[in-house]
Design a protein around this nucleic acid. Structure first.
Length: 605
RNA sequence: GGCGCUGUAGCUCAAUUGGUUAGAGUCCCGGACUGUCGAUCCGGAGGUUGCGGGUUCGAGUCCCGUCAGCGUCGCCA
C-alpha cells in the first residue's frame, strides 16, 4: 500500500504518529511561508501543512502543485493550534505536517473542479464523468446506492433467498417495450435481445424448485427516456414459490422497513398502506399517487348532468365525467395567467378540452367565468361537494375518465409542489393492488395485458374471464414511494388451462403462444408450483432515498435523453470487418453517419 | 415523432424597448504574503454570443432552419 491512512481517518487519537497519505489536491492556500493543502480521497479531507523549514526539495515540489494533482505525503499528525480547528471536517482537529512529498500524477487544468460551488451543466458533467464523480454529492449518492443494495441483499439472504444470475443475451419477446438487439455471428441474420427483465428465467427457477430467488439484474428497454427512466437500469428481481399476493407484499414490507430504518433512520409502521387500483384512480387519477398530501379528486358528474352549463351537461349525458380538485388556499396565488398555464397543460399534454375554475371569494361566493350558467343552488352544491372555503380554487375537467384522470393528476402533482403541500423530505410508502388484468389496445378491440401475459387473475374473478374480462382484477401489486412506482409484481399463472384462456383473450392462439413462450409453457407443465414475485427499481429507490429528482444522478455512467453516452461516445460506428462477420450491411440511406455530437464538435473547431 | 425551456470567457451567470469597445465572479498565468480552511491583496490573459441563414442603418437580443442538453406528451407488457 502506498498509504498508511485515508484522508478521512486521522483524528486526535493519532497525534504524534507518522503517516503516509495519498489523494487529490482539493484546495491550495499559499501564504508565502506556510502553505495549506486540503488532500481529498473517497473517505474525506485532511489538511496538509507545508512549513518554510521543509527541505528545498519538498518546497520545490510543492510549488508545482495544482488542483487535482495526485500526491503522496509523508508527515506527522499534530493537533491544530487553539481556535483553528475546522468543525466542518471530521479530521478538523488535526493537521498533517509534511516531511516528504511525491507527485504521483499531474492533472491538466480541469474544465471544472469537484469542489466548486456552482454545479456545471449536465452535458459537461457527463462528458467528464471521472471529474463529476469526484463531487461530494455524487460520492454520497453512490455510497448510498451501495448500502441500499447491500441491505436488500442482506435482507434477502436472511430470508433464505438464493442469488442467481440469468442471461443477458436472451431471446426477443415482441410484447412490451422495444428490445435492444445483439446480432449473432454464428447464426447470421438472427439476434439476441437484451432482457427487459429476467421474468421468464425467474419463473423457470421456481419450476426448478429454487423457491426463493433474487437477482440484482440489469435490464434494458429501448424506449424514450425521462427524468426517472434510463435505457438500462437495475432492478432487484425477486420470485417466491408457494405464496399469494400478501406474502410477497409482506416480504417487501419488511424489506422497506429495514431499508428505511438503516438508511434513513425512519420507523415504518407495517403493514404499509394499501389502495386498490380503482380507488387510486378515483381519488387521485393515477396508479402511483403521491400520498403525502390530499387534494383528492371530487366527482360531480351527477351535479353536472342537472346543471345549466352546456359543456358539463352534455359531458355527463354522454357518459363521461366531470371531476375536479380543490386547491385549498390557492386562489390568491393563481392569477388568470397561471390558471391559463394549467389549462394549456391539460389541453396540450392530454387533449382535455379545457379547464373550468371557480374561485371562492371572501364572502363565500363562487366566482367564475362560467358561474352565470349555474343557479345559486347549483353553486351552493358545488361548494359543499368540494368543501370550498374562501381562498380556495376549484379546478374541473369535463371529459372522458382517462383524460380527467390524467389532467387532474398532473394538476395535483404540479400544485402540490407549487403550493408546498408536503415536506419534500417526508417519505411515504404504499401499495396499489388489484390492477385490471386487461386494458383495451388503442386501435383494436383486442385486450392487452396490463402487466404481462402470465399474470394471475384474482381467484374470485376467475369466472369473469369469460363473461366480463375487462372487469377482471389481477393479483398484481405496485410499490409506490412518494408518487413514484418503485416496483411492481404479480402472482403468476401456474395453471395451463387458465394460461390458455388468458392467451385467448389477448388474441394469442395456441400456435403463436407456443412460438413465443413455448419453453415456458412446456416448463409450466412439468410441476410448476404456485409462484409470484416483484421487481424493485433500484435506481428509483436510490433517487427517492437520496431525495433527488432525476435518476441519472443515481447511476455512475448514465445516458442522455437520446440514450447517448457522452463520455465514451456510444453508440458509435464499427469496423466494416465486424459487420461482415455478422452478415450485416448498413443501409445506404443511413450510411456511416457521424453522430450528432461529432458533427457539432467539428463545427465548433 | 409532438410541445416547451436552455445554449454568451475553461466554469457559473449578467447584458433595459434591438444601440458605443459584450461585463462580473471563479478558474488560469504572473507577483505579494508564516495560520488559512470559499484565504486575502495587486497585475494580466481569456469571446466567431452552439451552428447556418434572414429582417434591420444596427442583432447576444427579433424571425426561420439546424445541433446539443434538459423537461414533458406519445411510448415504457
Amino acid at each position: 500500500m502506498l498509504r498508511t491512512h485515508t484522508c478521512g481517518e486521522l483524528t486526535l487519537e493519532n497525534i504524534g504518529q507518522t503517516a503516509t497519505l495519498c489523494g487529490w489536491v482539493d484546495t491550495i492556500r499559499d501564504f508565502g511561508g506556510v502553505t495549506f493543502i486540503d488532500l481529498r480521497d473517497r473517505y474525506g479531507r485532511t489538511q496538509v501543512v507545508f512549513n518554510p523549514d521543509s527541505t528545498q526539495e519538498v518546497l520545490a515540489e510543492m510549488g508545482k502543485l495544482k488542483n487535482e494533482y495526485v500526491i503522496k505525503v509523508v508527515g506527522e499528525v499534530r493537533p491544530r493550534p487553539d481556535g483553528q480547528t475546522n468543525k466542518k471536517l471530521a479530521t478538523g482537529e488535526v493537521e498533517f505536517v509534511v516531511s516528504d512529498l511525491e507527485i504521483l500524477n499531474e492533472c491538466k487544468t480541469p474544465p471544472f473542479v469537484p469542489g466548486q460551488k456552482d454545479v456545471p451543466g449536465e452535458d459537461l458533467r457527463l462528458k467528464h464523468r471521472y471529474l463529476d464523480l469526484r463531487r461530494e454529492k455524487m460520492l454520497q449518492t453512490l455510497q448510498l446506492r451501495s448500502r441500499i443494495i447491500k441491505t436488500m441483499r442482506d435482507y434477502c439472504a436472511d430470508n433464505n433467498f438464493i442469488d442467481i444470475e440469468t442471461p443477458i443475451l436472451g431471446r426477443s419477446t415482441p410484447e412490451g417495450a422495444r428490445d435492444y438487439l445483439v446480432p449473432s455471428r454464428v447464426f447470421k441474420g438472427k439476434f439476441y435481445a437484451l432482457p427487459q427483465s429476467p421474468q421468464i428465467y425467474k419463473q423457470i427457477m421456481m419450476i426448478a424448485g429454487y423457491d426463493r430467488y433474487i437477482q440484482v439484474a440489469r435490464c434494458f428497454r429501448d424506449e424514450d427516456l425521462r427524468a426517472d427512466r434510463q435505457p438500462e437500469f437495475t432492478q432487484l428481481d425477486l420470485e417466491m414459490s408457494f405464496v399469494d399476493s400478501d406474502d410477497v407484499i409482506g416480504m417487501i414490507d419488511g424489506m422497506m422497513q429495514r431499508l428505511a430504518k438503516e438508511l434513513l433512520g425512519l420507523d415504518l409502521q407495517l403493514p404499509l398502506q394499501r389502495l386498490t387500483y380503482d380507488e387510486a384512480m378515483t381519488r387521485f387519477g393515477h396508479d402511483a399517487p403521491d400520498l403525502r398530501f390530499g387534494m383528492e379528486i371530487v366527482d360531480v358528474t351527477d351535479l353536472a348532468s342537472a346543471c345549466g352549463f352546456g359543456v358539463f351537461k352534455s359531458t355527463a349525458e354522454a357518459g363521461k365525467f366531470v371531476r375536479g380538485v380543490n386547491a385549498k388556499g390557492a386562489a390568491p396565488m393563481y392569477s388568470r395567467k397561471r390558471i391559463d398555464e394549467l389549462t394549456n397543460m391539460v389541453k396540450d399534454d392530454f387533449g382535455a378540452k379545457g379547464l373550468a375554475w371557480f374561485r371562492c371569494e371572501e364572502d363565500g361566493s363562487l366566482f367564475s367565468p362560467i358561474a352565470k350558467f349555474f343557479t345559486e343552488e347549483e353553486l351552493a352544491d358545488l361548494k359543499i361537494r368540494f368543501d370550498a372555503e374562501p381562498g380556495d380554487l376549484l379546478l374541473l375537467i369535463a371529459d372522458t375518465w382517462d383524460i380527467s384522470c390524467k389532467g387532474l393528476y398532473s394538476i395535483r402533482k404540479r400544485m402540490g409542489v407549487e403550493l408546498e403541500l408536503y415536506d419534500p423530505k417526508e417519505m411515504h410508502f404504499s401499495w396499489v393492488v388489484e390492477f385490471p388484468m386487461f386494458e383495451r389496445g388503442d386501435e383494436t378491440e383486442r385486450w392487452n395485458a396490463m402487466h404481462h401475459p402470465f399474470t394471475a387473475p384474482r381467484d374470485q374473478d376467475l369466472d369473469q374471464l369469460d363473461s366480463d374480462a375487462g372487469k377482471t382484477r389481477a393479483k398484481a401489486y405496485d410499490l409506490v414511494i412518494n408518487g413514484y412506482e418503485a416496483g411492481g409484481g404479480t402472482i403468476r399463472i401456474h395453471d395451463s388451462g387458465i394460461q390458455q384462456k388468458v392467451f385467448g383473450l389477448l388474441g394469442l392462439d395456441e400456435e403463436s403462444a407456443q412460438e413465443r413462450f413455448g419453453f415456458l409453457l412446456d416448463a409450466l407443465k412439468y410441476g410448476a408450483p404456485p409462484h409470484g414475485g416483484i421487481a424493485l427499481g433500484i435506481d428509483r429507490v436510490v433517487m427517492l432515498f437520496a431525495g433527488l429528482d432525476n435518476i441519472r444522478d443515481c447511476i455512475a455512467f448514465p445516458k442522455t435523453q437520446k440514450a447517448y453516452d457522452m463520455m465514451t461516445e456510444a453508440p458509435n460506428v464499427v469496423e466494416n470487418l465486424q459487420l461482415e462477420d455478422l452478415g450485416i450491411e448498413i443501409s445506404k440511406l443511413i450510411g456511416n453517419q457521424k453522430t450528432d455530437s461529432e458533427e457539432q464538435s467539428e463545427g465548433t473547431q
